[in-house]
């Protein structure tokens, strides 16, 4: 995926940065418009039921008949009674502004004016998305650090030992084809049963997911120095450790960052999935709670916050990458 992503980004740089903004904005606006339009047929059953209770004539007038009709047909037959499509209490598809209001309410309003908010109590409210996002972010970071460290160590081992290369590398590749996330609930329960709970089980899953991109990328990176460079190190009679520190590791930095970008996004997914089995806070727990109680706006708000976190994390790694490569004189 990285190669392809890099290729497309390279192709896009032909335009100055500001010129690429209007088309993106147009697409985002189009998506939001589609979202608003889609909310009407998605919510039509609930809207008509409420209209009927309020005494407005609805066609057909029995809820059983309506249940069997398609949403589009209902919209076509009741054009005048759809006013509530974008303001329902528990919509099947909340309108974008409803999600934004929920996001605002569950972050800023909850913390500033809520009974358990940070202003009143001095600690984050356990009902606010800020708190849940923070829980997820912690697990993501711990898992990411463990996964990256293990991945780098294993990659160094693979590059230096032929036995490890031949025996471990095929399994590392095979394990990428296995849906590892399926292990998540089991890892959580097993660690719970031997008394480990809280942050660490989620971090283990995060680490597991971010581990393999780093191994594969780092093996590639540590092997990237050419024959000429390796020969030069030989003429210096450099031991393997010097080759590693002065040549292999510096040469692998661009590969490392490419892997880290995949790894940190994978860590976040791991942390969220890891929060599903144990309801102890975090964005994953928030989504599952929302789906149990039909609070769709709450799921969407958690989803948007997760998306924003992912974007922020990937951007942060990208920023670090640009800074590091520029200082190392390797900027593209």
């Amino acid at each position: 995926m990285t190669d392809a992503t890099v290729a497309t980004q390279g192709a896009m740089r032909r335009w100055p940065r500001w010129l690429s903004l209007p088309p993106v904005l147009a697409m985002v606006l189009a998506l939001i418009a589609i979202w608003y339009v889609a909310a009407v047929p998605m919510n039509v059953h609930e809207v008509l039921t409420r209209a009927e209770r309020a005494g407005i004539a609805v066609s057909p007038d029995s809820a059983v008949l309506r249940r069997d009709m398609s949403a589009l047909a209902l919209v076509a037959r009741n054009p005048g009674t759809l006013g509530e499509s974008w303001s329902l209490d528990r919509p099947r598809l909340p309108a974008p502004h409803q999600v934004l209001v929920e996001l605002y309410d569950s972050t800023i309003v909850e913390e500033v004016t809520g009974r358990r908010g940070i202003v009143r109590t001095g600690s984050l409210s356990n009902r606010s998305l800020v708190y849940h996002g923070w829980v997820t972010l912690n697990a993501t970071f711990v898992g990411f650090l463990i996964g990256t460290a293990l991945g780098v160590v294993l990659a160094v081992g693979i590059v230096h030992s032929r036995v490890m290369d031949l025996s471990v590398m095929p399994w590392a590749i095979v394990s990428q084809t296995i849906p590892i996330v399926a292990l998540a609930p089991m890892i959580i329960v097993v660690l719970y049963s031997i008394g480990i709970q809280g942050l660490l089980p989620k971090a283990v899953i995060s680490a597991y997911l971010s581990f393999f991109p780093v191994v594969v990328g780092m093996v590639k990176g540590l092997r990237s120095p050419g024959a000429m460079q390796m020969d030069l190190m030989r003429t210096y009679n450099a031991p393997a450790s010097t080759v590693l520190w002065k040549l292999r590791l510096p040469a692998s930095v661009p590969y490392l960052f490419a892997s880290l970008k995949i790894g940190i996004a994978a860590s976040l997914v791991g942390a969220i999935v890891g929060e599903l089995p144990v309801q102890q806070g975090g964005l994953g727990a928030r989504m599952l709670a929302g789906s149990y109680y039909g609070q769709t706006a709450q799921i969407w708000a958690a989803l948007i916050l997760a998306a924003a976190l992912a974007a922020l994390l990937v951007w942060a790694v990208g920023w670090l990458e640009r800074r590091t490569l520029a200082r190392m004189g390797m900027a593209a």
Binding site: T8, M12, V28
Partner: peptide
């Protein structure tokens, strides 16, 4: 120019959510 940056962005999101 409009969809590709969005696609790159979406590909990194936790869509399992």
């Amino acid at each position: 120019r409009g969809l590709l940056p969005l696609g790159n962005f979406m590909a990194a999101l936790p869509i399992v959510g």
